[in-house]
Structures are given as structure tokens and as C-alpha cells.
Amino acid sequence: MSAATTTASRRYVMTVDTRQCVGCKACVLACKGENAVPDGFCRDWVVEEVRGEFPVLSAEIRSERCNHCTEAPCVKNCPTGASWVAEGGTVLVTHGKCSGCKACISACPYDARFVHPDGYVDKCTFCLHRVQKGLMPACVTVCPTGTLTFGDAHDPDSAVSRLLRTRKSKVAHPESGAEPNLYFLV
């Protein structure tokens, strides 16, 4: 992370380059390994959309996860305060405060949350435990195709800021008003 912004004023975002992604799911498995995600669950996933009819086809592949929304519906709808906003706008769940009521799961436009077998709601953390050590999230590190970029959108010199300036991008469900922070480069 650049020193240009203080921790408090950072806005962490991730860009997903749909042109480069081959949908190999290295991100899914690296996340599972890094975060000890239990069997049968995942915090990120891959969507393949193919349009058209044989032989005129187009495809888009997206690695998806929690959008760490600026106006996060999960945080607003959490009755116990377990969902909270950490450094850089990262949305986290404090396990001990979570009752597993699933209000956040209903509220999330992105289907990004699940109930961990231990009873709390779990999801992508942007690997904040790694980011705080100066590392990239596990999915970004493993990705063989350079599809994923993570950084501070408030820092104009960051790689994500440069990509968002120079490439066309879109977000999923912009109509939700949640102001998601996962950008798909097209």
C-alpha cells in the first residue's frame, strides 16, 4: 500500500480483468487454503457467462466475492453489530457477536455470505490479515493470469486507480445502491 493515504482514509477495492480470467478457480482454492474455509463452502467463486448461439458466441468469466460495499446492506441489517466496517472499508464479521440469524445473507445482493459450520456467518475478508502485513489477498497472489488487482482507490497512483482510470469497468447490481467495490474490467 502506498503511504500517500492514511489507514483511515483508504478505500480498498479489487479489480477483476474479465479479459484475462480463464476461470481456473485457483483463486477459489487459494482462498480456501489461506482462510481454512470448511469443506463445502467457498468465499469466492467463478461465473462463466456465454452468450449467443453456435457458432456466434461470446464469453465473460468473472471471479466474484464479497463486494465490501461502501453502503453495505449487510452491516445495516445486522441486528447484533457483528458485521462491521474495518480498515479501507473492508466489511468483516466478528464471529463472537454473530448469532447466525442470516439477516445479512438476505440483505446481501451478491450472495457472498454463508453460515460457517461453527455457527457464525462467514465471507471474504479481502484477506485483511494479510493486507495489514503488506501482502496481497491470497486470491490476488495465486492468480496465474494477473486477473485480480487489489489496492487503495483513494491513492491515485495505486494499480487499481490506474486500471479504473484507463479501462472500462462495471460493477454487479449497481441498482442495489450498495456502492460495491469489486470492479469488473471489460
Binding site: 447466525g100 442470516k102 445473507i105 454463508f114 453460515v115 460457517h116 455457527g119
Partner: peptide, 17 residues
């Protein structure tokens, strides 16, 4: 996944939480 996690193990853990 969510359904399975939510209705099974999750409900049990809710009580203990």
C-alpha cells in the same frame, strides 16, 4: 451450500451462541 449450512449446523450453533 448456504441452505445446507444455514438450516443444519448453523441452527444448532445459534443456540450455543
Amino acid at each position: 451450500f448456504i441452505k445446507i449450512g444455514g438450516t443444519g449446523v448453523g441452527a444448532v450453533a445459534l443456540g450455543s451462541g
